[in-house]
Design a binder for these strands. Structure first.
Lengths: 122, 122
DNA sequence: CGATTGCGTCAGTCATCACTAACGTTAGCG
DNA sequence: CGCTAACGTTAGTGATGACTGACGCAATCG
């Protein structure tokens, strides 16, 4: 099982999205802009931290590909970018499928106790 | 849209799972034990960090409900726990759905330019 | 019984990160 | 032009967290 450069890039994208989502405030922001497009100031008004902090969170989310920015005069409007979650959903689905498969194999082996062995799948 | 204690617990669970998955090494460990059940030592042998570090990662994953531990003699066998990902998958699906919906509404408003207004959905 | 194997836990270190205050920048108004 | 509004950016700080070495503990072997 080799890991090609495409996997690495997918991993990097997943890693950035995951790190971005691991912060509660960023998830809250993402929930806001998932519901409707909002300006930076409107987003900041929803929280009790500085606009600076919110701005930095927005940068992280944008870099991770989870939101998009659109300028309108002096304002900057943000909205969620659903495709940014695709890699993550793929990752979770794969993990879920293989975990469930392993659990099934283990349950079956325990029921039969045939000493199956599972001779080093990898 | 009120937030009940059940939502808070769901958020807490999602938060722990997310924080656990935000670490590349922990994802690698999870991928290993998703494929087959492994002992702590076998897992540690796959990486170039100390067994201590791996053990702490396993603790985090276990606390987050992403893996289960089973003792066999002096060994401890770990495997992925698929249900641990359920909350996260729900979160991502919800986010994806509302993001897509908002994107559609925005695209439609721009096409028609009817000055729809979107009078404060929340 | 003592020795070894297979782990987890504790204490300490270094890097990362979320946050704030101050400053820089661009768009509109008089 | 100057002035304000709405932002992003930079420098610095405190807390979190990933890691290592030393130690502790249960299970097995002689």
């Amino acid at each position: 099982m080799e890991r090609g450069p495409r996997d690495d890039r997918a991993e990097a994208a997943t890693d950035e999205a995951l790190r971005a989502l691991a912060e509660p405030r960023r998830r809250a922001i993402l929930r806001l802009v998932a519901r409707r497009e909002l300006a930076a100031g409107e987003i900041a008004a929803e929280f009790e931290v500085t606009r600076t902090a919110v701005s930095q969170h927005l940068t992280v989310l944008k870099t991770a590909g989870l939101i998009t920015e659109r300028r309108e005069g002096t304002r900057r409007l943000y909205r969620a970018r659903p495709e940014g979650l695709d890699g993550l959903r793929q990752f979770l689905d794969d993990m879920w499928a293989s975990s469930l498969d392993t659990a099934r194999r283990l349950a079956e082996a325990e029921r039969g106790l045939t000493g199956d062995g599972l001779p080093a799948t990898g």
